[in-house]
Design a protein around this nucleic acid. Sequence first.
DNA 1: CAGTCGCGAATTTGATCATATCCTGAAACC
DNA 2: GGTTTCAGGATATGATCAAATTCGCGACTG
Lengths: 240, 240
Amino acid sequence: MEKPRETPEAPREAPRKVPSHEVTYCRLRDMILFGQLAPGQAVTIQGLTATLGAGMTPVREAIRRLTAEGALDLQDNRRVSVPVLTAGQMDELAFARLTLEPRLAELACPRMTGTDIAALEQIDAEVNAAIRTGDVARYLHGNYRFHFAIYDRAGAPILLAIVQSLWLRFGPSLRVVCGRQGTSNLPDRHEEALAAMRAGDAPALADAIAEDIRQGISQVTLQGASVTAAPVDRRQDAEI
Amino acid sequence: MEKPRETPEAPREAPRKVPSHEVTYCRLRDMILFGQLAPGQAVTIQGLTATLGAGMTPVREAIRRLTAEGALDLQDNRRVSVPVLTAGQMDELAFARLTLEPRLAELACPRMTGTDIAALEQIDAEVNAAIRTGDVARYLHGNYRFHFAIYDRAGAPILLAIVQSLWLRFGPSLRVVCGRQGTSNLPDRHEEALAAMRAGDAPALADAIAEDIRQGISQVTLQGASVTAAPVDRRQDAEI
DNA sequence: CAGTCGCGAATTTGATCATATCCTGAAACC
DNA sequence: GGTTTCAGGATATGATCAAATTCGCGACTG
């Protein structure tokens, strides 16, 4: 009970167990995942130490982790940037996502409890609200939470990690599309997915997820043909 | 002239500017991939700085990369160890490998040249020689080279990176089996794969690869039931 | 004369190390 | 038994060095 006795002033950061490199990793990861960084944008170590207020070593380690996950790209100049996906790489992403994510949903379906489904309904309501109000950031967060709240239940940590990496690669491109056309034209299959979960119909859930992914990818591939063609803003602190 | 552009002792590595953290990463990766480290074995930063002769920062970054790839496991004690796979995780690996690797082979098949196939025949001959002489290390290296010489030709860098990560997760367990039963009972489907490549039959190549993977995995799952049951040697410098 | 091309200095950025601090687990001690 | 101490190891800092890019200046060319 007398555990936080040495911090009488600041009880708010008493659980100091999280290392700085972990925090830095999460923050940088979210920046990539939710579109703070555009494809092709440069990322410098010293720039991150300034903007994130972290030391050099934690930033370096976070960059190494993200690089290993494919979320960042090490150029031969030893510089780091957000990858720009080619059409072929987008096809790879489509194949991998369509293979793995429905499988995760299928595994998760029999494990979903009523509480889980209720939480998903809550998330989906938030996603729809974000689409209605045009809040891109909230939409991206909600959509992510919807998918991974399902995938988490699959109890498949390896596949889950791979899918996380796929979303990290996909995030920047998705954000470009959303930034271009707002939240209009973002139909999803969350309703179908929820219905399948309520019915305990794993194949139907897998189908709904697959269709949802197909729609999301088609948004990027159709609209994103100019992503690679357009001149890329390589400024480090470009505000989107 | 006051610029020592060439190190007087080693002019042959002048054009190479490989950073130490990259070298450390590769060395540690190979140690994991080819069975120098057993599942469950502890890996310490300071131990690696000693055995690899590298500084602390490069070792740290290499560990972060391997951790992100699933090749190492960060325990909540902040300690690092080689992961021990559960049966369920082995199933995940089987699913992912059987999904992605035949696909890579299929993509690669139409791109294989006669020179590529000749190189593969050379590698397969070495694999067979290794099996015959019971040289486990040479077998593991050869088998790896055989598969990835094919996958490299697919021109699919994202899928390739994912499969690399799968092999990294699989490596330590495979090595345990080989260490237990030598190179006997290691039939492969390399001949069928080579025949399919010569015929330009992509589906047949995919089938051969799939069957090869199935055989390898069954070796581990059948023999490896005791891997998780057996007491794990957690010494850092355990010689296998 | 103007434009540009090259070359070297200055600046930015990355890589590495030595050191200091903090955590964790466990042995030792009351 | 519970607390204290201690050693091993992980974390983080800042300094220092090296590589690369940028920039400026001058000469050469059209």
